[in-house]
Design a protein around this nucleic acid. Sequence first.
DNA 1: AATTATACTTACCAAAAAGAGAGTATGCGT
DNA 2: ACGCATACTCTCTTTTTGGTAAGTATAATT
Lengths: 141, 141
Amino acid sequence: MAGISSFTPAQIAEAEHHLDTPSPETDPKVDRLVNELIGRVADKWTMLILEELNEKGVMRFSEIGRAIEGISQKMLTQTLRLMERDGLVTRTVYPVVPPKVEYALTALGESLGAAFCGVWVWAERHLEEIEASREAFDTRE
Amino acid sequence: MAGISSFTPAQIAEAEHHLDTPSPETDPKVDRLVNELIGRVADKWTMLILEELNEKGVMRFSEIGRAIEGISQKMLTQTLRLMERDGLVTRTVYPVVPPKVEYALTALGESLGAAFCGVWVWAERHLEEIEASREAFDTRE
DNA sequence: AATTATACTTACCAAAAAGAGAGTATGCGT
DNA sequence: ACGCATACTCTCTTTTTGGTAAGTATAATT
């Protein structure tokens, strides 16, 4: 499993481009939808799978399972299905025995990875600061 | 409640700066911590409070409660406490009756908002694409 | 004297999420 | 004939999460 750096300069440039053009959206309906979407997508397993697929390209089901420590088969299936439904990954089934299914990121999936890159970097950058803050908070209580 | 645009160009520039310098972090321990941190922080209520405080500056407890539709007192207290612990907000208590407590973002909190900005923009941009993908997925099943 | 306002805390309960483990289909190697 | 490998699905149980409602303190107001 790689860290924060598995996105290419091109992908990062894409994210920057987005940041250049924040739109003045205030429609509450869109707001709600956007929120729900972020909740869906900003999930632990989704992000780990995103990262893994971005790094390796095409992967089989059990290959992803082995790469991501601690994920259960159930969660892997479930997360991949939701990601497929949202158009983040493609799922290719080969009708052979034993079964073979390959997963890969779509362009949309890659763009999400790039967008999240900023948050990853933020988290990594401020990790110590936050831990220090927590410790201070906990000891003064 | 405002949409995506409540962050200043300076904040966005900060986020871009982060994107310019992705570090080659692969340490599994840091990876795990970063992940846990993102999970903590990429939560529905945290993001809404972040947005609200970024827009309004300083706010009282019940003011935030009124601004964010659907949040319970319990969740508001809980989320604000965790944000304070992580160093994202400051909490100022005025010893008066009835009680008065003010909340505001720290620099760290603002930087998180800026980092998330890219994801907000991504979500808003690709909302329709994703809904279309879902619909296609659901009807072909 | 009762009511109101504010910022909580605590207890209880329902719902949702997640983990564990067994079951399924089937061609291939031994 | 038997077990293995793969990618699931299904059920059962546990854990986590979140909502509701009640309690607390006290000064000002009616």
